[in-house]
Structure formats: structure tokens, C-alpha cells
Simulated scan of single mutants.
Amino acid sequence: MKKRNRIIYWIATIWLSLGMLSTGIVQLIHVQQEADLFARLGYPAYLLTMLGAWKILGVIAVLVPKFPLLKEWAYAGFFFAMSGAVISHLAMNDEAKELFGPILLLVLTTVSWYFRPLSRKVVSVNA
């Protein structure tokens, strides 16, 4: 892996991890502003706990060495959660500023996944 690609991977992965960890904690502890947002979007409060826990577990999966299949699932979960957030905000005709965070995390998820090292990829061997 080229040094440039490693740098891109780690920058994207660190920012993705910080974003997912911070929003995961906010959701897990049910910060009032986040609970109000979920209610306005029409989601039940228990979804905050589920998403928060999954985001934190996903960050751990992405950062720890090995377990490439688990990383694939974590990236997929991040992608689905953030694309769902974008769609939810669009469905509610929210202002463009509400889309910034989810779109940024969606881009960081894609960049981190794309530039991940071979040791963090699921490699299939055709027999």
C-alpha cells in the first residue's frame, strides 16, 4: 500500500471514528436535543439506544486489527445509518445544513472503506 493511500485511510478513519463515536455516545445517553430530533423525524426513542450502541461497536470493529468480515459489516452499518439519516432529513424537507453531518460521515465511510489496507479487507480465494 502506498504511503499516500495509508495517510488517506487513517485520516478518513480517524475522523469517521470520532464522528461515529461522538454521535453514538449522544444517542446512547439520550441527549435531549437528539431525542427531540428523532421524535420530530418520527422515530421511537429506543432507536437512539440501538443506533448509539451499534455505532460505538462499529468504531471498535473498524479500528481493531484483523476481523475483516466484521469490518465489512461495520462499514455497511455506517453506510446504511448515514444514508438513512440523509433520506430522513430530505423526507422532512429539512434545511441543507441538517444534511451536512450525515453526508460528511457517509463520505468518510466510503473513503475509509475504499482506502483500507489489504489486511483489513475480506479476500476470497477462488479454487
Rank of each mutant, 00 (worst) to 15 (best):
T109R: 11
S119E: 14
M20Y: 08
L69D: 01
F115G: 04
V122A: 04
V64H: 00
M1L: 00
L21D: 04
E95L: 09
L47Q: 06
Q27N: 15
V125M: 05
K2L: 00
P44W: 10
A85T: 14
L90W: 06
G77K: 10
R116W: 07
G19D: 11
F79A: 12
F67T: 02
K55W: 01
Y9L: 03
F80V: 12
Y9A: 05
K121R: 15
I11D: 03
E34N: 13
L106G: 12
T23E: 04
Q33K: 15
L18R: 04
A35H: 09
V107P: 12
P68Y: 04
G58A: 03
A85Q: 05
I60M: 01
Y43K: 08
V59H: 00
V122F: 04
Y9Q: 12
A76Q: 09
E72R: 07
Y114G: 03
K66C: 00
T23P: 01
E72C: 01
L69R: 11
G101F: 14
K121P: 01
L48V: 05
G19K: 03
L28A: 13
T23L: 10
D94Y: 06
S112L: 07
A53W: 04
L99Y: 11
I7M: 02
L28D: 06
F100R: 09
K66Q: 05
K97E: 14
M82S: 05
P117W: 05
L28S: 12
S112G: 07
W73F: 08
S112E: 11
A85P: 02
K66W: 10
L28M: 13
G58E: 04
G84P: 03
F67N: 00
Y46G: 01
H89S: 06
S22P: 12
L118S: 12
I7F: 03
P65W: 01
M20E: 06
S17M: 11
I14H: 14
A85V: 12
R120Q: 12
Y46M: 03
L16A: 10
S22I: 08
L63Y: 01
Y114H: 11
G84M: 09
I14P: 12
L37Y: 15
A35L: 13
I60G: 01
T110E: 02
E72V: 03
